[in-house]
Amino acid sequence: MVDTNAAVKPKQILTSGVKPIWCPGCGDFGVQAGINKALSDLGIPKENAVIVSGIGCSSSMPHPFATYGVHSLHGRLLPVAAGVKLANDDLTVIGAGGDGDGYGIGVGHLVHNARRNVDLTYIVMNNEIYGLTTGQASPTSLFGMKTKSTPFGSIENPENPVGLALASGATYVARAFSGDPMHMAEMIKGAILHKGFSLIDVFSPCVTFNNLNTFDWFRKRVYKLDSVGHDATSISAALERSLEAEKTNWEKVPIGLFYKVEKPHYAQLDMTLKKGSLLKQPMPTKDQVGEILEEYK
């Protein structure tokens, strides 16, 4: 366990005063600190930030923040977040949820919002377990892992979320570790600044229900992509790196920026949004309605 909050000294504190509900030592505290630092370093006014979550321990993320938030349904944070963003492009929209939420029940939305390149920052607190429902296997639980729902060891292979996001067309893909919130804050800042769909897969240990993938377990295995001269402009290099954990039997696990590419994002291509934020576009006049009606004469 590390006191992750103490490690981060943000310029602006964005807390609502609501205490997070996490167990002491939960990795999600580090993620809270990372988001807080990223938002405050970038000077994003709290009224212009919306944190959208699903359901799970990690999905209570919006509450400690003084920003706007939607704590939505299990697996549905991405459509809600995309709806907010498409309605008002002036907002900074951050999705924050769990691995079960985003890689399990809601995985379809990940694929589609990535390929749509909606300008969202999506942070998945990946603890390789279902925390809130007290410790069942998640889509990223390792093969053989014993959980409440797999007491004899999981016989399913873990999903590769970084590879999936890359293959789906995400234009910013990174990984971070809750044990290094400063690095995570940099990844989040990069994602917020990036215009397009960003996924940050964050190892955020569950100290209560996952005694395999602990802070120490990750600390021994993670290394930074920066340190090996990874070329984050190359999709093939990124895909290759996304397979490394699996290939090394989780001995070497890269964190950092896998891939970043500039491509037009959804609002830049959409006929209506090109004219400005949907929210700001005027209501139709009676004449405009009448004109449309004439089509049917």
Binding site: S72, V80, G83, V84, K85
Partner: peptide, 12 residues
């Protein structure tokens, strides 16, 4: 996605 996106847009 259809309903949840509409909800998101309405929240906004």
């Amino acid at each position: 996605a259809a309903i949840n996106m509409a909800i998101g847009a309405s929240v906004a």
